[in-house]
Nucleic acid binder design. Structure first.
Lengths: 196, 196
DNA sequence: AGCTTTCTTGAGTGATCGCTCAAGTATATA
DNA sequence: TATATACTTGAGCGATCACTCAAGAAAGCT
């Protein structure tokens, strides 16, 4: 008996994610969302409940996308290959709403104003870091990374390097590509444990 | 004939900087500022003109403070010593409003909503990077860093590493101290140009 | 003391914020 | 075709936003 929604909810979340990613939490008003999603206030609230709730969906979708891209990369190029290519990939694609990581932007913006959302973003960052650690372990098992390193330590540093890269990529006048290449090079050097 | 202001404008800018640093641009309302500065709307606007103008003053003061701290460090411990100590210093001091860099937070938050302020923050980041490069050159002149490296390249990477460190330090459950130590260690390794 | 000049006060501006809800419209079943 | 059940519309809610300004208070000068 009922009537079907005139929109594809999943596609709307994608569009909302891109808008939030580019403009941040406070920088995105409901008017912006209504315009971008083609929804009137009533439909918006019927579909998502609140700005908070939609932001959380967007955050989850963002994280899911990042995880998928990295796993695909590993499936095609192996663990080390993925870790080498990922930095270049995240700052690539001019089509993307922003270079900086949406999760990092969210933690920085909302840590002192919306703890639940900041905590969720932080949790996503942690599971990405766990995925990095898994890949480093895979690379060690494959003999591409020296066993003398601790995979969790490598992952922590890799995550930090990526975050720095992506902040740098957001800046004007910084050659982020060069930084991405340096991070990739370092991955290749991990085969041999040289010092300390 | 006139009456003197009841406040020390310079001290107010310090307090405003700390509030903006912690809460960001949109997260800091005029009510927040009035409360923190102990100023009524009229006095606020007589003193600073606008939220924008005060934020700019805060940004400049923040950058000036960072520059001074690094130069002091270099005067006491030499160029390489300063570069080694700075990462630990910026994530230290529990008294600080935030671990993350206020300039980076500003670029990320305001790039698409307040270009002038974002550009100013970015310019401050660039001059910090120039200062890093100068220190690397000093360290090379002192024989502490191999001449095989390009100082500007080292500075670009150092800046990116610092930004990543400071985003990481803002996260919950990340051992930022360990990352800072790794960055410092890498400085010591620059004395010898090993490969590539 | 008296005058001038500035600073301080705080109620109040229009605009925008996230959000609500009653009324209207479209669709799937019977 | 009639009815039930959503979905859509959009005016408008109270709260808050950055900001203004007229009136009053205080300090430096003569």
């Amino acid at each position: 008996m009922p009537r079907k929604p005139a929109y594809d909810k999943n596609a709307l979340i994608d569009r909302a994610r891109d808008l939030f990613w580019k403009q941040g939490w406070a920088g995105t008003s409901l008017k912006d969302l209504e315009r971008t999603l083609g929804l009137n206030p009533g439909s918006f609230y019927a579909a998502f409940g609140s700005k908070d709730a939609l932001f959380q969906l967007a955050l989850d979708k963002y994280a899911e996308g990042g995880t998928k891209r990295l796993k695909d990369l590993a499936a095609e190029h192996g663990a080390l290959g993925a870790l080498q290519r990922y930095p270049g990939l995240v700052i690539d694609e001019a089509s993307k709403p922003a270079k900086a990581c949406m999760l990092a932007k969210t933690v920085l913006e909302l840590k002192n104003q919306n703890e639940p959302l900041a905590a969720r973003a932080n949790a996503h960052l942690s599971s990405m870091e766990n995925l990095f650690a898994d890949l480093f372990r895979d690379a060690q098992a494959a003999g591409n990374v020296s066993d003398a390193y601790d995979a969790d330590t490598l992952a922590r540093r890799y995550q930090s390097d990526l975050l720095g890269l992506r902040v740098s990529a957001e800046r004007v006048g910084v050659d982020a590509r060069a930084i991405a290449d340096e991070i990739a090079e370092r991955m290749a050097e991990l085969a041999y444990h040289t010092d300390d």
